[in-house]
Nucleic acid binder design. Structure first.
Length: 279
DNA sequence: AATGATTTCAACCGCAGTCTG
DNA sequence: TCAGACTGCGGTTGAAATCAT
């Protein structure tokens, strides 16, 4: 049995959000906190599906978001993390406070990919393009082989690179093709970082030197879901609260909690959303 | 100025993972 | 164990903005 759609889509609005919709969603979440997204549009008076509300909030309305292009340091970090994690954008975004997975994904596809290619680096594998081209030939020949494969031949190959490259490998499975993007090659990273068009810094740390999220010192207000008519035994909500506390993710707010946030609601908020009734 | 091509990025879609009864 | 409900993730789309001619 297939899954039901996240919501009844009949009569629901799609496409870009209006300032009025933003205001309604913002007001609702700032007043009630994040609860079950499915219920949000109804309670907030929006003709949107819960998924759409969550996306809008997560990617554009959250007050802790940074706006604008990624800095050189952020870009370096994205490249570094991508070389280790591949296209796991949410994981990458978790290392960049104030940035969303969608934003990083878009930036990767529109800017970083091009930069890397210009520098002769394959954005998928983080290897020099010349090596990638050579390797692309090899597995292709191998891939044609299973038809005539003998019993002695293994079906799985682990292609290690030539002796000049130390840490890279590409795991190949003849049945399924490339399974894993290679691990980071420090030499490649050095090449990237030392390229004048990228930056002058050579920091390659992917560790969370940037752990100083703007949320780090935030203290969550005491919150009782029962005040909002929601049973604290409800598993989804309860888990939500647990996650909030465990992950230090701000989610349950009182409007007053924002009074000291300088960055709150600047004119940078996109799509004509620069003014909100609340403020 | 007009038009077509290209780029950007906000938003959508479908699937996977997780939790509960 | 399984189905249903829900959230989160990554890939993709398409409208708007920008660029080139």
């Amino acid at each position: 049995m297939g899954r039901q759609p996240c919501c009844d889509k009949v009569g629901l609005k799609k496409g870009p959000w209006s300032a009025d919709e933003d205001r309604k969603l913002m007001n609702f979440i700032l007043t009630h906190g994040q609860c079950c997204w499915r219920a949000v549009p109804k309670l907030a008076g929006l003709l949107r599906c819960g998924k759409s509300c969550r996306l809008r909030w997560t990617n554009y309305l959250r007050p802790d978001l940074k706006r604008g292009l990624l800095s050189d340091d952020e870009e370096k970090m994205v490249i570094d993390l991508h070389s280790q994690l591949g296209n796991r954008w949410s994981k990458i975004a978790s290392h960049l406070p104030g940035r969303t997975d969608n934003e990083i994904k878009n930036h990767w596809n529109t800017h970083i990919k091009k930069k890397l290619r210009k520098m002769g680096i394959d954005p998928l594998t983080h290897k020099p393009l010349s090596i990638v081209e050579q390797e692309e030939d090899k597995p292709l020949k191998k891939l044609q082989k299973p038809m005539e494969q003998t019993a002695e031949e293994p079906t799985n190959y682990c292609l290690t690179k030539d002796s000049n490259s130390k840490n890279m490998f590409m795991a190949m499975n003849l049945e399924y093709g490339v399974e894993e993007v290679p691990m980071i090659d420090p030499e490649c990273l050095e090449l990237i970082y030392n390229n004048s068009s990228m930056s002058t810094s050579t920091s390659t740390s992917s560790s969370s030197s940037n752990e100083s999220s703007i949320l780090k010192d935030f203290h969550f207000p005491d919150f009782d879901w029962s005040d909002y008519g929601i049973d604290n035994n409800n598993h989804h909500n309860n888990n939500g609260v647990d996650n909030i506390m465990e992950n230090n993710v701000m989610s349950l707010w009182d409007v007053d909690d924002f009074s000291s946030w300088d960055l709150l609601l600047t004119d940078d908020i996109p799509q004509s959303s620069s003014t909100f009734g609340l403020f």
